[in-house]
Structure formats: C-alpha cells, structure tokens
Amino acid sequence: MIKESVIQADSQLTKVEGNIVSSMDGEMVMLSINSGKYYNFGEIGGEIWRLADEFPTVKEIIDELRNIYEVDEETCTAQVMEFLEHLNKEGLIEVN
C-alpha cells in the first residue's frame, strides 16, 4: 500500500510500538521486531525521535531543533518533513 504525503506542520506524531532503541557512538539505532529491519537514525534523526516524545506537533519539533541547531526555517522544515515521511513509510510513526 502506498501512503500519500500527509505530514503537515500541525500534524501530530505517534510512535509505533515494537521497536528496540539503543545508542551507538552518539547515534540512535533501532531494531524493528515487526519488520526485521535495522535503522540508523544518525545524530539529528535521533534528536527528532526524542523530541517527538516531548513535543506533539511537527512545528514544535522544528522550532525546538532550530533552538539547538544553526539552520534556517525553510531548510529545517523541508528536511525534517522528508525525514518524517520516510519514518511514516517505514511504519515507525503514525500521523494524525
């Protein structure tokens, strides 16, 4: 099934359960029990995953990232949206 692009700034993210998360050399890694896939989120991907616990909407996650990292809003929004689309396609998050 092909999922359409549904993520917007006010979208709320929910993490899908059934994944084992760990940290390796400062980067977040994950093993999906459901799919048998191993994911490397990298440093910033791991930061986004952690922020999703604290901040319910995509816009809040982007705002917080811009407090931490030197990046303009347009670049940050486009790249975070693309990353979240990938997570959604892999079935690691649900978008509401």
């Binding site: 093993l31 048998g36 896939k37 191993y38 994911y39 490397n40 989120f41 990298g42 440093e43 910033i44 991907g45 986004i48 407090n67 931490i68 990292y69 030197e70 990046v71 670049t75 940050c76 790249q79 975070v80 990353f83 990938h86 997570l87 892999e90």
Partner: peptide
C-alpha cells in the same frame, strides 16, 4: 552556541532467522 545542522537521514538495513 548552536550546533551545526546536518540533513537527517534514515539508514535502513535488512536483518533474524
């Protein structure tokens, strides 16, 4: 001081028999 930004990428590897 803010950290340097890098594009977030999801690296996917197949793994469990």
């Amino acid at each position: 001081m803010k950290k340097a930004w890098e594009k977030p990428e999801l690296e996917v590897l197949e793994v469990m028999t």
